[in-house]
Design a protein around this nucleic acid. Structure first.
Length: 133
DNA sequence: ATGGTGACTGTAC
DNA sequence: CGTACAGCCACCA
């Protein structure tokens, strides 16, 4: 044997199932699906928990792929400022409405108390939520 | 291969 | 508080 060596994939045209981007995307979706109602997560947080700290933009790009056709609580994903960043894709008002429907209070500027509403999976103790009061 | 863009973030002014 | 700049990683032309 030694003739047909699979060698390395000539070109990674599309992210393979084992490809880092694919795993990253799967973890993002999994985390989003675990966000409880009335809670939120940030893009940077998702990227961090997905194993790609600093890839907050990619986290957002993954969400972009959900647009319509997803049952995940995508609306619970906001930016580090505590505000929705979907106004660029035309879902800003829709997301804010969904958040308010869950009891999340948005400031006049559309900002919420991220420090109190940000949710972290029990498994990851990266940043244990401090006692509210 | 190169360059530009983006549902981001943190620091600086 | 807001705006501006740089760093960051992956997708697309």
């Amino acid at each position: 044997m030694g003739s047909a060596a699979p060698a390395a994939p000539a070109s990674r045209a599309v992210a393979a199932p084992d490809s880092p981007p694919a795993a990253f995307r799967s973890r993002i979706l999994e985390l989003v699906g675990r966000i409880p109602s009335g809670r939120v997560m940030t893009y940077g947080q998702l990227a961090l928990l997905a194993g790609n700290p600093g890839a907050a933009r990619q986290a957002g790009f993954v969400m972009n792929g959900l647009m319509g056709g997803t049952e995940l609580p995508w609306h619970r994903v906001i930016n580090a400022q505590g505000r929705v960043s979907t106004h660029k894709v035309g879902f800003g008002d829709m997301q804010e409405g969904l958040l308010r429907a869950e009891g999340i209070v948005l400031d006049a500027s559309g900002r919420c108390d991220l420090k109190a509403l940000q949710w972290w999976p029990d498994e990851s103790r990266e940043a244990p939520p401090e006692p509210l009061f």
